[in-house]
Design a protein around this nucleic acid. Sequence first.
RNA 1: CGGGAUGUAGCUCAGUCCGGUUAGAGUGCACGUCUGGGGGGCGUGAGGCCGAUGGUUCGAAUCCAUUCAUCCCGACCA
Length: 488
Amino acid sequence: MAKAITSRSEDYSQWYIDIVKRAGLADNSAVRGCMVIKPYGFAIWEKMRDQIDLMFKETGHVNAYFPLFIPKSFLSREAEHVEGFAKECAVVTHHRLMNDPNGGGVVVDPSAKLEEELIVRPTSETIIWHTYKDWINSYRDLPLLINQWANVVRWEMRTRLFLRTAEFLWQEGHTAHATREEAVAEAELMQKVYADFAEQYMAMPVVKGTKTPNERFAGAEETYTIEALMGDGKALQAGTSHFLGQNFAKAFDVKFLNENNVEEYVWATSWGVSTRLLGGLIMTHSDDDGLVLPPKLAPTQVMIVPIPKPAVEIDEAAGIIMKALKAKGISVDYDTDPKKRPGFKFAEHELKGIPVRIGIGKRDLAKGTVEIARRDTKEKTFQPMEGVAEYIEQLLEDIQNNLFDRAVQYRADHTTSVDNFDDFKEVIESKGGFVSAHWDGTDETEKKIKELTKATIRCIPLNAEEEEGACILTGKPSKRRVLFAKAY
RNA sequence: CGGGAUGUAGCUCAGUCCGGUUAGAGUGCACGUCUGGGGGGCGUGAGGCCGAUGGUUCGAAUCCAUUCAUCCCGACCA
């Protein structure tokens, strides 16, 4: 194993790949664009998933599961939707293999051609709304608040571990409502749920906003987004929530009778976050020594390392500490591997982002203390054995808060307001980050700016104040600033 | 789909230009040993149809052709 990972300043992209691989999060697989999520990476995903799932249930949603395959014809029911996804779909055309009569292994059996091809879901609006038609008849059937945890496939041209893979894991919520207002409220609520999760658990600050028509989800009337800023100054769309209007209800003929016995189309939302969040987590906190995990999402929050190796007194002290930590609901492990040396273990656990390390050596024990090292700042202190669990409980909270504060500060330092196009280009090209600027509200201007600078409008922030201004490109009047950035 | 590159040990790569016994290194792995407060030292060992196919040649990892795959940079995207 090489001793160091590529430094962030040297090659950010390679640094990211090094972290993912060396920390044991994921690997490339035999299938192009598809990754193997390794146990440690999956453990983090499980922590995230469990928490998000809890938050969904607290807001009244239930889980269900819909098929992986979607009849091809479903995709063409909603015109914009097919436009948005058709180019990147995997298609199942046959259902059987046979031995090659020429001895070349197995080949597709031409007689097993499907009557109608099946699409491997890139997202499930169509199959779900086809199903909802049967489930919804009356206003009493509404709202329908359903989520599913699933894998989806989008045949991307270029992939990156976690950030963009051909197959990825996600959740997709699909809700049906009696009124426009209620559906809009739902879409906004889920954006808030995502933002709360990102900030309180991932310690990743996000900007809540709406997408421009150009960046909107295919088939949506409004897309609410949470946008995070990564360590290289690029933005990451971390989660989206869509108000779908009546588009899917009309495409799949989903109507209900209201209280006045009048037939109406249903109003819809859909919303999702994916394993991409793991990429965001990595790029928000990690450093040149490896992964840095916020305590709330760390599979192991505390690692105890015996120095230099396990021994009776050390094992005893470790046992006492572990018991006290576990009683507080803190996950802790004791690294008893006799073959590996302390220095190796320190580096290894730092690489894996374990928030707190406790070093116990005989020298310390004689003084009744242990060494405590925090991952986020690399600071080490000596603490008395007495009350060490309370100290660590507080320390984990401090680390969680410090990571968030640090990320907020970074974002503040990398958010720039500009009022003319020269400054805009300069900031996008050199400093990066979010650029707050006026825009005339047109598709053409947005596309032109993207062409010229590669920056896109990440969102129209929810909290944007009304402010008279002039579009940085065209000089036309604008009522508020929007956030631009280069994005993943 | 355009542009660029690479396929040799589990991993990272040298060797290829200029063909010549038995294909190398580092790291990882196994065993032994001395160690032990920030990625240890020494010793021994296992591990390869040099991406695939076909050619040229007395002889191919090396030259030629074809092919497959992967990676990077673009356009597309959560």
